[in-house]
Amino acid sequence: MSTSMTPPSSAHQRTTADQAVRGNGRAVTAAPPGVPQSPLEASSKRSRWTVAILLAVAMLWTLIPLVWMLLSSFKNRSDVTAATPQVLFAPTLDNYRNLFSGPNNLGPYIWHSVLAAGISALLALFLGALAGYGLARTRMRGKKHLAFWIISTRMAPIAAIVVPLFLIFRGLGLIDSIPGLVLAYLTFNLPFAIWLMSAFFAEVPPSLEESALVAGCTRWQAFRTVILPLTKSGLVTTFVLCLVFAWNDYAFAVVFSGPNSQTLPIAASQLVTQTGIDWGQLTAIGTIVVVPMMLAGLAVRRWLVTGLTLGAVTGE
């Protein structure tokens, strides 16, 4: 999974895309077997094949490395480095067993990752929802510039902000601490969360909260009982994307963490040593990093799909 910044598509684009898909499907199914096809139908069939092939290539491109990693993590040392790739082999749990034994076992790394990624994603979600709501609803002048400035803080490469942040963190005693990592991830995730959530809130008609206000709600009650439940998919999407970014991060962790806060990607990098690379353990760590995020993604897939297309709220 990537955390690249795909701008949320507008409602207009969504509907035209929907129509295009539906229109396409109708054209293909409309031709009964044996009936000569019109050129239009033939070309739409051809384009469907093109799409299918492209999708297949994209799927292989994504899945083969993952499957290869998964398989390798269950191979012993000779199978993993065999010149002929081994697809059939005697599986072993040695790699995992080795990771969790010895003085430098993986347990603390996992715990650090869970803490840093989890807390930073929750904080980004909470603050992002509040700020995003404010941004979506304010009528102030220069609102678009403000929104752009917020997201632009995420456009700098991590490398550019690591050094100044390091100096600040050292002054505050945040180096090699979980709060330090949480804060570092927030600097990147919060703008993203604000920006994404404000796009979701902007889709909720203001009359819904006005109706709640007239019905007797305070602003906070209207937000909690009416607006938040309607942006569930936005909340899930934002949380997962922030979580994935923090969970996968290497650049911040390698600079800011120490023995008390090193995360899983750091553990993986430690397996690349001058004396060689333990491919079996490396792929095992890779699997441990990827699997929880994939499971999380699967669990919230329903909201994630509607969330990423911003098809969240259909008031009417």
Partner: peptide, 20 residues
């Protein structure tokens, strides 16, 4: 006064029914 203290009820153009 804020809306909630006015003892009024409002019908909106788009009805503003809570979808959930």
């Amino acid at each position: 006064l804020p809306p909630r203290d006015r003892d009024i009820a409002m019908v909106f153009q788009n009805y503003a029914l809570y979808p959930h």
